[in-house]
């Protein structure tokens, strides 16, 4: 058994990193927060050229049908660079649509021509960035609806702790599909969305550790870099440990989802819990190491910190995901 990313996947991650590092993503995120969506849409189209938008779309609709491991590789880099917009939602919407037999938007989604949003209550009650998305979908019980159609309604935009995110409650609309396959599609989309969100948090946590480490090397107090003090070193070492321990859970969960393993829900939830805790630990440490400058809107650190805080409760809170692990453990045979 080999448990490591292939050279192709490492190259995919590196190409995404190169594109995003040169794209001034903090400016894109700030633009999104200010209601200027065009740079975000343009960035999404460029990511689509590298295949990101097509990952969860079946091949016959121009997609890559790439599977959860590639999704995790890509979304870790999106989180690493704080890419704004309904990116997880677009990937999840493609699954809901394709597996419910609704093919209308799949080709456009694969090309990055449109972004979609989706509400999957109870754990995903809001449609993220519905103002930039089309279609906006919602699954209620076994019915898949398009909310941005006749009869549909969405609330006014609600602001998030992450200024780049806008949340909407959605109701009504046109029913696109109904039945057991919708229920199954929504369940699958939830696992993938939670996994992609966990991946974004791992990437964001890495970015926060990089910022904190860079600052600790450069900032001089008492005549020496603050990173030479053990209190700072040990805090950042603990962040590194948490991130390094969350990573194998994330990839293990991606493999479990790909294999349609019975343990997939447990493993996705374990990954979401661990990635959230690690990223949050990174956010707290990065802020503390930066000191007051980290607490300013001007400092990019806040883009990642608020994104992590938002993603912690998106696609299932820690409580929700711990309960899923607990349920799996409660019903499981213990080896002696």
């Amino acid at each position: 058994m080999r448990f490591a990313l292939s050279a192709e996947r490492l190259a995919f991650a590196a190409s995404l990193h190169d594109l995003l590092a040169a794209a001034d993503t903090p400016a894109v995120a700030r633009g999104f927060a200010a209601g200027d969506y065009e740079p975000g849409r343009t960035l999404w189209k460029r990511l689509a050229e590298l295949g990101v938008a097509a990952l969860t779309v079946p091949e016959r609709w121009g997609g890559l049908d790439a599977g959860p491991v590639d999704v995790v590789v890509a979304f870790e880099e999106l989180g690493h660079h704080a890419v704004p917009g309904p990116v997880v939602e677009s990937a999840a919407a493609a699954i809901v649509l394709a597996e419910s037999g609704v093919t209308t938007w799949l080709t456009d989604l694969a090309r990055g021509e449109v972004m979609a949003s989706v509400a999957l209550p109870p754990h995903v009650p809001y449609a993220l960035d519905a103002s930039v998305a089309a279609p906006v979908l919602a699954v209620e019980h076994d019915a898949l609806s398009r909310v941005d159609a006749t009869g549909g309604a969405r609330s006014a935009a609600m602001s998030s702790v992450d200024p780049a995110r806008r949340l909407f409650t959605v109701t009504g609309g046109e029913v696109l599909a109904r039945g057991e396959e919708v229920r199954r599609a929504a369940a699958h989309a939830f696992e993938l969305g939670a996994l992609a969100t966990a991946a974004q948090m791992l990437g964001a946590g890495r970015a926060l550790l990089e910022m904190a480490t860079g600052h600790a090397k450069a900032r001089v107090q008492f005549g020496r870099p603050v990173g030479s003090f053990q209190a700072v070193k040990h805090r950042l070492a603990d962040v590194y440990v948490a991130l390094e321990l969350a990573r194998p859970l994330l990839f293990g969960a991606a493999i479990a989802v790909a294999d349609r393993s019975e343990a997939a829900a447990r493993d996705v939830s374990a990954a979401k819990v661990a990635c959230a805790e690690a990223a949050y630990r990174a956010a707290r440490a990065a802020l503390q190491v930066h000191g007051a400058v980290g607490y300013t809107r001007e400092c990019d650190l806040g883009l990642w910190l608020t994104k992590v805080r938002a993603l912690m409760s998106a696609w299932g809170t820690g409580t929700v995901h711990r309960a899923r692990v607990r349920a799996a453990l409660a019903g499981r045979e213990v080896r002696r």
């Binding site: 550790l209 480490t213 090397k217 990173g227 700072v232 070193k233 040990h234 950042l236 590194y240």
Partner: peptide, 16 residues
Amino acid sequence: IQRDVIAERLLGLPRG
């Protein structure tokens, strides 16, 4: 000591 090793050899922070 392990945290020192991580901070210095993996994160590249200066030795104390």
